[in-house]
């Protein structure tokens, strides 16, 4: 169990790192998908099986494919990207590193007060199931659910307007 955790974590971090440093955007996409899988694995570890599936379907399946489409469409599948200067890259890495150290330093001793009653009742292991999630989504989160349709509609209209070849 623990070793799976470490493996998945390692995989996620490494592939995430590869996303960032891969020369070819296609490679980046693929590494990103790998990261998503690793994250989905974590979801499974945490009993959020439904979310794990959704993560793979939505992210790896839809979003990343969209990325791939665009990259193909624009014919960007080469490593033609000019690198930023070493100095800038180094600064970027240092900045990210400092941020990382800050966050990790701050979170080192964080503990979360666990609600033991949940564990006792056994409900704790069910929350990730479709049934329970569905309940939460359509009861408690009904309004945001409805409103996200507007978000989608807006995004759709926008994407069409911007992406269409000619509007007249």
């Amino acid at each position: 169990m623990v070793s799976i955790f470490y493996f998945l974590s390692f995989l996620a971090v490494i592939s995430a790192f590869m996303v960032v440093i891969a020369k070819n955007p296609i490679h980046s996409v693929l590494y990103l998908i790998m990261t998503f899988f690793a994250i989905a694995g974590h979801y499974v570890l945490m009993n959020a099986q439904f979310l794990a599936v959704v993560n793979i379907i939505v992210y790896a399946g839809a979003i990343m494919v969209l990325f791939l489409f665009v990259i193909m469409l624009l014919n960007l599948n080469t490593d033609a990207e000019q690198n930023k200067s070493i100095l800038i890259r180094l600064t970027g890495i240092v900045a990210g590193g400092i941020l990382m150290i800050t966050l990790i330093g701050a979170f080192k001793q964080v503990s979360i007060v666990k609600d033991t009653t949940f564990y006792a009742s056994g409900q704790a292991y069910d929350i990730g199931l479709v049934k329970n999630l569905g309940n939460t989504l359509f009861k408690e989160f009904l309004v945001p659910f409805e409103l996200s349709s507007i978000l989608f509609l807006a995004a759709m209209v926008g994407a069409v307007m911007l992406g269409k070849k000619d509007i007249k």
């Binding site: 309004v143 945001p144 507007i150 978000l151 807006a154 995004a155 926008g158 994407a159 307007m161 911007l162």
Partner: peptide, 20 residues
């Protein structure tokens, strides 16, 4: 979540409007 959704709805419309 409403804050997040609200901000994103607004922002996405604005991204499009800015590039209109």
């Amino acid at each position: 979540v409403m804050l997040f959704l609200g901000i994103e709805t607004l922002s996405i419309c604005l991204y499009v409007l800015a590039g209109s």
